[in-house]
Simulated assay, not measured.
Amino acid sequence: MLLTDIVGVEDFGGDMDFKVAGTKNGITAIQLDMKVDGIGDEIVKGALDRAKVARAMILEKMHAVIAASRPALSQYAPKVQMVKIPVERIGEIIGPGGKIIRQIQTITGAVVDVKDDGSVFVTSVKQEAVDKAVAWIEGITHEVKAGEEYEGEVKRMMAFGAFVEILPGKEGLVHVSQMSTGFVQNPSDVVALGQKVKVRVIEIDDQGRVNLSMLFGDDAAKVPPREQSDRPRRPFNRGPRRY
């Protein structure tokens, strides 16, 4: 006897459990568990025929309720996104004692799970939280290159320039000489804390520091030379050394 159901009672009282999943176009998955030594072709054919009829009926009921997939997940459904990073960069995401990953989770509200193979799973009920955490992670692991352009935020001001965050957790310096084609006495004359500015990377120095410019196109060629220090220089020839 073949019994068609979707509640699973055959798991306890039957000789086999034959699950068939699919669409109106055909079968997509099969699972067969048996408590007997084997089954014949007729039973297999009969089970597949019954499954086709049952599947068509269930799909018809489903289609009557929702004819197509929703364009987006429910606001209550968890959102998951996977980011792949180089294994050697995992430590940068974790941070000393887990400082960085805790900071990402606290500020964005997303859960970040880092695997040993470099797979990073970001989960949250809110898509915005996932997007922020993913952007942060990608910013940490992105290799900044000369010539790239960013819209960043002024985070710190110094007498010689302003530090602009171009990626989450990654800043570069815009020297006063790279803020305008004219002379800039004080960075606050051009920018303010929290201001969004467009910058380009002009170099990565030998210490890995990012140097930025707010000048583009023809203006970049008009950069005035940096002011020399007013401190008098010592003469090169200091005379013979005394021991």
Rank of each mutant, 00 (worst) to 15 (best):
A220E: 15
G91A: 08
P224K: 10
K126Q: 13
Q195Y: 09
K79Q: 12
I90C: 08
E227L: 15
G98C: 10
S74P: 01
I43W: 01
T28K: 13
G38P: 09
A56W: 11
G239C: 06
Q75C: 08
M82T: 15
K24G: 10
V122E: 04
R233D: 06
Y150L: 08
Q195L: 11
V7Y: 12
R89P: 00
V87C: 03
T4F: 06
L167W: 06
H63G: 13
K115F: 00
S74T: 06
V134T: 05
L212T: 02
I140G: 10
V199P: 09
G22S: 08
K115T: 03
I6W: 10
D116W: 04
A129K: 11
D131W: 00
E88W: 08
G139E: 00
V199H: 07
Q178L: 05
A135G: 05
M16N: 07
G46Y: 02
T141I: 13
L167A: 11
T123F: 01
I137P: 11
K126R: 15
V201G: 08
T28Q: 10
E143Q: 15
H63N: 14
P224V: 01
K145H: 07
A72C: 07
E203S: 14
F18P: 10
A221S: 14
Q178P: 05
V197D: 05
M214R: 09
G118E: 02
D41C: 09
P96I: 04
K198Y: 00
G169R: 08
L32H: 05
F160C: 02
D219Y: 03
G40R: 10
E138D: 08
K132E: 04
V144R: 00
V122F: 02
I93D: 01
S177N: 12
V111W: 05
K126H: 12
P224M: 04
A51W: 03
G147V: 00
S213M: 07
V197G: 07
N186H: 12
G139Q: 00
Q185D: 12
A110T: 04
K145T: 04
Q127I: 05
F12D: 09
V191N: 09
D205W: 06
G194S: 05
